[in-house]
Every structure is written in structure tokens, then in C-alpha cells.
Design a protein around this nucleic acid. Structure first.
Lengths: 189, 189
DNA sequence: CTTCTAATTAGATATTCATTTAATTAGTTA
DNA sequence: TAACTAATTAAATGAATATCTAATTAGAAG
């Protein structure tokens, strides 16, 4: 996933020692011992940090005798640094098509404060919205009609319509004026 | 220090949840509960992440009734994201004038592999170089002349000159052919 | 004044991670 | 082959940190 690469990149730069390594390598390649000396840390520490930077694709290396020179890949650095500016919600929110559709419907019909802006007229979208609302109710709990109305009003003023939809689409059932959730496999049927 | 700000910024983006928050806020402000819902985490988790993003200067907020809306500061985001591309060694290596001078002298006279390219003729610079070399010796330990020579040779072939400079500038003292470090307060006197 | 709601703080837990020393590997040179 | 050097790996330790539940605060509305 695109997202993980971004996180990895920023994690790689989220450390003083690594930023210093990076700044040093900007002036040209250096080998491990030189880095360790300049930064006042031990060689294994350099190995550790180098491997993180390498994993993030920011450096490459060339061997000369026993000495390995580390090079900064400035192009990759630039690419990654700018990636965060271009990222969009798609890259970051549920991936599969179904979930994605669900997400965009919810995004369209619910305001940022969680209230329902409008009841969808397309049945498919309406079901998505109903499911979202019904998820705030407790399975197995018995609700008086008044309770249900109050609950629904937190989302939308037309509680009567939504309450009827709950029943008609089998999200809930009613017995003697008491409402209760159906098991999820019946929802929307 | 400039460096710490950079680290803080990248640390702030080095986490999946925070990158997601950021991507969501790109489409406009959201409040805590909305973020928690969309991301599937609990409100305290949002508070936690928001405060990191806020500390990094990436978001600001506006209150409406009980609800606090978080806004992405896209300008700051851009500035910080690009800062890593512009950073130089100065920002990342010893800061105060004295240390800085030290650093550039060492950089000029030592090769990347740690060897001394040339013994400085200016006394001030020579002292910096001597101090650097002498720091590899163990305080309190007694060295035979041969050991000292061997040690110095790792830096420069003219070990005799450097060994004499050690004594003349009080980095070490000699007693019955045995060498030992002086305490640092005597160095260079 | 009481109740409600959104946000935050406190405290706990489990995980990640930077650093070190000691041991090992890989490659060079004699 | 043996001796050396630079780098890496292994293992240990201590600090930072992502998340949660439970308790608390701050503001709004009845």
C-alpha cells in the first residue's frame, strides 16, 4: 500500500541521527566509520540507521575494498518528501470497492457532525445509511418506541420514516410495541 | 534548533493514524468524534494524535459550541515537507562558533577514512588536530613509546613529530619512557 | 442547578526502537 | 593460509510511544 511507504519514509526521517546522516551524505558519500566518527556513535548504530534509510529507499552503496560508501539518493528523497502533499483520502481510507462505495455514500449523506443531511431515495444508498445508523444500537437490548425515536432524532428529524425503514428492511423487529435489533445477516433483506 | 523541528515534523508523520488524519483533514475540517468514527479508534487516541500534529504546527482548531473542529495548515505542511530538501550540514553539525571552527578544521585536515592528510602548521589548528587524535587514547593508561607510535601511525606516518607535539603541548607526559595522558585542562597549554 | 456532550487527562499495557557491547561475517592483503 | 579491517548480527537494556478504559473538565442547554 502507498500509505505504508509514506509512513516508512517519515519514520526514517523522524530521528536526529538519521537526519544528520542524511545531511552529511548530501555533501558526498561517506563510509560507516567516518559517519560514526563525525556523529559520535558506534558503528553498529550506523548500521542500524543506514538499514532504515536503505529500507526507505533513500540511500544506496558502493563497495571499495573493505569499505562501503553510502550515497544519498536525492531524487528519491525529493519524491518522498513531496508525496505527502499529494496524498488523497482514497489512499488512506478503506480499499475494497464495496467498502469504498459505502464510505463515499456515508460521506455524501452525513455531515461532519454526524447528522444525516438527507434520506437517500435510492434503496441501495438508503440501506447503507440505515445500517450506519442502526450500528449505534445495542444488540439484544429492548427499546421502547420513544427511545428509538429519540435515538434517531440525533441523526435526522424525520424519525418516523427512518423507524419504519428499520422494520421494513429487517434491521429491527417490533413485538408489542417493543423494538429490538435483528441479527446482521437479516439486515437489508 | 532547526534540526529538532525537522525531526518533530517527520515523527509526527511517521504514523499511519496521523497520516490518515491528515489526509482526511485535507478535504476540510472535522471534529474529534468524526475522526474517531472514520478511523475506527477511540476519542482519546484522537486527542493523542491531534496533540502531536498540533505540536508540529500542522493543525489549528476552531470551537463551535461543544465541538472543536480541526483544520489542516497546508502551508506549514508544505514548508516542513520541503525543509528536508534544503537542509545543510551546518544545521546538523556542532553549532557554537568554537565547535564549528573545530569541525571545519577537522574536516579539512582529516580524510573521510579518518587519517590525517597533513599536519597543520598554524598552531591553533594543529592543537585541534592533536586533541582529536589524543582522544582515542585511554585516560590513566600507561603506554610504551612503541604503542604510542603504532597508535599515531593509524592517523599519519610521521608519528615522531606528532608524538613530540603531544608532549610539547601537554596532552601527555613521559616518565621513564612511559607515556600517559594529562588531564584535559592541561591540553594545549 | 442539573444534565448532556465533546474533549481531555490519568493511568495501564504492550510494542517499537535507539543504543551499546560482544561475537561473527566478508573481503583484503601479506 | 593467517592476520587484519570494515561491516553486520545478536542480545540486552532503557526510553519512547500507540492504544485503551475510566475518570475528569469545560461548555451548552434544559
Amino acid at each position: 500500500m502507498q500509505l505504508d511507504r509514506l509512513v516508512q519514509f517519515h519514520k526514517a526521517l523522524g530521528d536526529v541521527t538519521r537526519i544528520r546522516i542524511l545531511a552529511l551524505l548530501k555533501n558526498g558519500p561517506l563510509h560507516g566509520q567516518a559517519l560514526a566518527g563525525k556523529l559520535g556513535v558506534k558503528p553498529p548504530t550506523i548500521t542500524h540507521h543506514i538499514s532504515k534509510l536503505r529500507d526507505a529507499g533513500l540511500i544506496y552503496e558502493r563497495r571499495d575494498k573493505n569499505t562501503i560508501y553510502f550515497y544519498l539518493d536525492e531524487k528519491k528523497l525529493k519524491q518522498n518528501a513531496e508525496a505527502i502533499l499529494k496524498i488523497g483520502v482514497e489512499a488512506v481510507m478503506p480499499v475494497n470497492k464495496k467498502e469504498n462505495e459505502k464510505y463515499s455514500v456515508l460521506n455524501n449523506f452525513f455531515a461532519a457532525d454526524g447528522t444525516l443531511k438527507q434520506i437517500p431515495s435510492m434503496r441501495k444508498k438508503r440501506l447503507i445509511v440505515l445500517e450506519h445508523i442502526v450500528k449505534g444500537l445495542i444488540p439484544g437490548k429492548q427499546y421502547a418506541e420513544k427511545e428509538i425515536n429519540e435515538y434517531i432524532k440525533r441523526f435526522h428529524e424525520d424519525y418516523a420514516t427512518i423507524r419504519r425503514e428499520f422494520i421494513a428492511n429487517h434491521y429491527m423487529f417490533r413485538e408489542n410495541g417493543i423494538y429490538e435489533l435483528n441479527p446482521p445477516e437479516l439486515w437489508g433483506k
